[in-house]
Amino acid sequence: MTFKSGPVFGGILLVLLALTYFSLISVVAYLSLLGLTGTISFRIYKNIVQAVQKTGDGHPFKEFLELDVSLPQNKVKEVSEVAVAHINAAVVELRRLFLVEDLVDSIKFGVLLWTLTYLGAWFNGMTLIIIAWVALFTLPKVYEANKTQIDANLEIVRTKLAEITSKVKAAIPIGKKAEEKKEQ
């Protein structure tokens, strides 16, 4: 697993680090130029080897040139339908939160936004993406090693959050009215 995920992790981390110092256009152009230089060099090398050994191997990228890379329309349609469903659900949820359908949920959303302002002041977006990328590859291993302790602590956090939410909803009369309407 490490041999497969290591190059993916390292390559994308390198691109993300490059994006912190250079523009997206520059990074894409340099990476494309690097790839093109590599393929041209390999093609010239293979042509020289074929000429010296007098073999007729043909084009070194023949199997890739014959590979069908077009997107199947049914798969594109399926993915776009799923994406539209998620976008619609997100828009409905944001409308519900911004127009204060449930006061407690809107306050939670406000606290989340307020927390994000501090997060944005501490880190820029690219730093957060790099941290998330590193966490994506490290957290599963940390979880495997410490599964029982992490699950126990997460359960404590879940119960405390449920307690606090129920206390806040009980203390706010508007929250009670919304619950009564949902029950009816």
Results as ranks from 00 to 15, higher is better:
Phe9Thr: 00
Leu113Ser: 07
Gln184Met: 14
Lys169Thr: 07
Ala162Gln: 10
Arg43Thr: 12
Asp151Tyr: 00
Leu19Met: 04
Val100Met: 12
Ala83Ser: 07
Asn124Met: 06
Val76Ser: 00
Asp102Glu: 09
Ser23Gln: 02
Trp133Asn: 05
Ala89Gln: 09
Arg158Trp: 10
Ser32Gly: 11
Gln50Ala: 08
Trp114Ile: 15
Ala90Asp: 10
Ile130Pro: 00
Glu81Met: 03
Pro72Met: 02
Ile48Arg: 06
Lys167Trp: 11
Ala90Glu: 06
Trp133Cys: 01
Ala132Trp: 05
Val79Arg: 11
Leu161Trp: 15
Leu13Asn: 02
Gly120Leu: 06
Phe109Thr: 01
Val27Ala: 05
Gly10Ser: 08
Asn47Trp: 02
Ile129Ala: 14
Leu34Asn: 04
Ser70Val: 09
Phe109Leu: 10
Asn47Gly: 12
Leu116Gly: 06
Leu97Gln: 04
Gly38Tyr: 08
Ala18Asp: 00
Lys108His: 09
Val76Asp: 03
Leu99Asn: 13
Val69Trp: 14
Leu67Arg: 07
Leu136Phe: 13
Leu16Thr: 03
Pro173Ala: 07
Ala145Arg: 04
Leu13Thr: 01
Val52Thr: 10
Glu78Val: 02
Gly56Ala: 15
Gln149Tyr: 11
Lys77His: 05
Leu154Arg: 04
Ile164Cys: 05
Lys46Pro: 01
Val82Lys: 08
Glu66His: 09
Pro7Thr: 05
Gln149Cys: 10
Glu101Met: 00
Lys75Gln: 14
Glu183His: 08
Pro173Thr: 12
Asn88Glu: 07
Ser32Ala: 08
Ser166Tyr: 05
Pro72Asp: 13
Glu63Leu: 12
Asn146Ser: 01
Ile150Ser: 00
Asn153Lys: 15
Pro140Val: 04
Ile130Glu: 03
Ile150Pro: 01
Lys54Gln: 15
Ile129Cys: 15
Leu94Ser: 11
Thr148Tyr: 03
Lys160Leu: 11
His86Asn: 10
Leu13Phe: 04
Ala178Tyr: 07
Phe137Trp: 05
Ser41Ile: 13
Val104Gln: 13
Met1Gln: 06
Ala171Val: 03
Ile156Asp: 15
His59Phe: 14
Asp68Trp: 01
Thr117Glu: 07
Asp68His: 02
Leu161Ala: 14
Pro173Ile: 12
Lys54Glu: 14
Gln53Tyr: 13
Ala90Gln: 09
Ser32Phe: 09
Ile156Ser: 15
Ala145Thr: 03
Glu93Ile: 11
Lys54Trp: 15
Leu34Ile: 11
Lys62Asp: 06
Leu128Glu: 05
Leu154Ser: 02
Leu24Cys: 01
Lys167Glu: 14
Ser26Ile: 05
Met126His: 12
Val84Gln: 14
Glu93Met: 11
Tyr21His: 06
Leu17Val: 11
Thr127Trp: 11
Tyr21Val: 01
Ser41Arg: 00
Gly175Thr: 09
Leu116Tyr: 02
Trp114Lys: 13
Ser32Gln: 07
Phe61Asn: 01
Ser23Lys: 00
Leu65Pro: 10
Pro140Asn: 09
Leu24Asp: 00
Ala162Asp: 08
